[in-house]
């Protein structure tokens, strides 16, 4: 059953990435050099809408909060993000879109995949020697989220009702998506 879901949900996600133009590196590059914000608007809207619906559906018992999986916050998250940012800007590919771009028949995406497999291998080999360094110093306790709604993960802002906070942030994201200009 989980394999069946993996196939259906994976096909859906790959379809969505291709259809929104995320597998086209020109769209990513133009977003990052701030000349065409089409993808930025789509991403803000997608995060805002999914976040709002997620917390509302958890609140009314439709989605099981046990399905949440919050990743840890540590120094390496920011530094790793910055390292990724260099390659992301130059190639116009991130791991998911670089892979699915192969289905577009993009030859440069094959080279991205090769480089990606090498980068992941290098990390796998060096992890043992960096795992106890400051790179993994936790930020704000590690696996934390802003809003309440999970029994597993601590909330940074427990005083505000979780659904209200998440919907507030979500709606703000959707408003940003709406007001951002398409072309700059």
């Amino acid at each position: 059953m989980t394999i069946f879901l993996a196939v259906i949900l994976g096909i859906f996600f790959g379809f969505a990435l291709q259809r929104v133009g995320a597998t086209n590196p020109a769209n990513i590059i133009n977003m990052l050099r701030l000349t065409d914000l089409h993808l930025m608007k789509a991403i803000f809207f997608a995060i805002g809408l999914s976040s709002t619906l997620l917390f509302v559906l958890m609140n009314i018992g439709v989605i099981n909060p046990g399905h949440l999986s919050v990743k840890s916050s540590y120094v390496g998250v920011i530094i790793g993000g910055a390292i990724m940012g260099v390659g992301f800007a130059v190639a116009g590919y991130c791991p998911g879109t670089g892979l699915t771009a192969i289905a577009d028949g993009r030859k440069d995406a094959l080279f991205f995949l090769g480089g990606g497999l090498l980068g992941a291998l290098i990390y796998t080999l060096v992890y043992g020697s960096i795992q106890n360094t400051w790179l993994f110093n936790k930020i704000a306790g590690g696996k934390v989220m802003l809003a309440t709604g999970s029994d597993t993960y601590q909330a940074l802002l427990p005083a505000i009702p979780g659904t209200l906070l998440a919907a507030g942030i979500g709606i703000a994201f959707m408003v940003i998506a709406w007001i951002l200009p398409k072309k700059v």
Partner: peptide, 18 residues
């Protein structure tokens, strides 16, 4: 793009996600 791929996946793994 090959070299960028190395950076992207090394960075994403250090960050713990992409």
């Amino acid at each position: 793009v090959f070299l960028a791929g190395v950076l992207v996946l090394f960075g994403a793994r250090l960050a713990g996600g992409c």
